[in-house]
Design a protein around this nucleic acid. Structure first.
Lengths: 173, 173
DNA sequence: AGAGTTAGTAATTGATCAATCACAAATCAG
DNA sequence: CTGATTTGTGATTGATCAATTACTAACTCT
């Protein structure tokens, strides 16, 4: 097992990573499967061995991005103190925005896509993040947990815009 | 001057309105100029008499949407009391989200488009809205005006997502 | 060795689309 | 009435793209 081996799982992950980059940079509808394939260093038709349609590839890419966010938030909730909970959640989100910016940019795009399968993934992702934060705020004894959760999500959405448009003044104080 | 007359100005406005609807519903990159033309009840090539490219049409549509928002906020700021300022601004935004939802959905799409001309319009729009709100909060003697402005914008962004995904639970309380 | 399976590609297809061109119909000015 | 301008469309073009087809190459197991 050399590190150059190419398993089917690796290939699929490569394609998803390439798709996240290309879709985020170029825009899902404008990006072509050939561009994704080129980034993944495979031929264009080979993409369709792993994903039957372009939309299915988007769906999978979105699932990956939500899983990353949810896992990260869960880790914080399971390991921090009530006083550090909110700042640590904010820090976790900022880390993701730094390291996996393209995944967040892709989520932003998907917010306005009207295909029902896409909307469903987005709704599930948002609902689960909200659930995790709300439960954690409640367990930490934070008062007005519902409103605080709303404000936490709201600041997250503004951070996204701030990053996407390169307008740090929008969020910084 | 009958109300059925078609001036060049009317035609242009028709095309912009049609573009806002079609782009918002279908997505800018996926929407076709033929669909815009059909909605505006003209032929597809005639669109290009008023806009030299599809992107220029998007740019104009975005300008219209920002002008609507900015004019609305200015009206509130110029006419309300310091105590009613924030609730009235929130109400003004909710009204726009109800009546001109497509314009906001188009702005959301444009947040992730990387063409520099599009980004410039979006940055100017956000910067001007922020300036208006911040100045008004300051003039109204609201403490921590900067932070309150940030939170106002943040709640606005969450409202957008809540509307786009039809998830009222995200913003309601 | 060689049959069977997996990994991968070149070439093509049918559809779609932004933009242009060539032209027609209507309106207007003198 | 007529020439000029404005308003508008049908037909076309050249490019692009998702998806399919028909292959080849490489590996695996016996």
């Amino acid at each position: 097992m050399a590190d150059t081996e190419t398993t089917s799982v690796n290939r699929k992950a490569d394609i998803i990573s390439a798709a996240i980059e290309v879709f985020a940079e170029i825009g899902y509808f404008r990006a072509t499967t050939a561009q994704v394939a080129e980034r993944a260093k495979i031929s264009q038709p080979y993409v369709f061995r792993f994903f039957s349609t372009k939309e299915e590839l988007l769906l999978t890419a979105l699932e990956v991005s939500w899983t990353r966010l949810i896992d990260s938030f869960r880790k914080v909730v399971d390991s921090t103190s009530p006083e550090r909970l909110e700042p640590d959640l904010i820090q976790a989100y900022e880390d993701i925005l730094n390291v996996y910016q393209n995944e967040i940019l892709l989520q932003m795009q998907a917010q306005t896509i009207r295909e029902e399968s896409i909307r469903e993934v987005m709704r599930q992702g948002f609902a689960e993040v909200r659930r995790i934060v709300l439960d954690a705020f409640g367990a930490a004894g934070i008062p007005n947990a519902e409103e605080r959760t709303m404000l936490f999500l709201a600041r997250g959405m503004l951070c996204n815009v701030s990053v996407a448009l390169a307008m740090p003044e929008l969020k910084d104080q």
